[in-house]
């Protein structure tokens, strides 16, 4: 990589950032196009280790609905989203469950847990 374009999503401004490798910078990248300092942080993070929160569902038995909504309690590496989705296909939870209950611990060794995002009787 030499140069990379991205849109900052920290606030609704949606600044178009340009990220450039630069050995003179502390973190190894120079960010331009940002209108505030938060853009620099976002740009570098997005380049070095882009992460996303994952929200999805798992099967649930003996409940009024067929699916329980779940989420990661911390963002996980973006590249692992599909792998994580694949893992969720195999999970089936028994009702009742409480909001915040852990459904999968330390999912794919990311350090994040998959937790129930609602209670279901």
């Amino acid at each position: 990589m030499n140069k990379k374009e991205m849109i900052c999503i920290v606030c609704p401004m949606g600044c178009r950032l340009t990220l450039q490798e630069d050995v003179n910078e502390e973190k190894g990248y120079k960010v331009s196009g940002n209108q505030c300092h938060r853009g620099i942080e976002y740009g570098i993070m997005e380049q070095v280790n882009p992460t996303r929160a994952l929200t999805s569902t798992v099967k649930i038995k003996d409940s009024s609905l067929n699916r329980l909504p779940v989420r990661t309690d911390h963002p996980i590496p973006k590249a692992m989203l599909f792998e994580c989705m694949k893992l969720l296909n195999h999970i089936e939870i028994q009702a009742p469950i409480k909001m915040g209950d852990i459904v999968v611990e330390n999912v794919l060794n990311t350090g994040a847990n998959i937790i129930a995002s609602r209670s279901m009787a």
Partner: peptide
């Protein structure tokens, strides 16, 4: 239904795509 196992080959594709 959602959340059905898509099978081994497809999962490799998904992982590759994710990478």
């Amino acid at each position: 239904p959602t959340k059905v196992d898509t099978g081994i080959e497809e999962s490799f594709d998904a992982v590759a795509a994710a990478k």
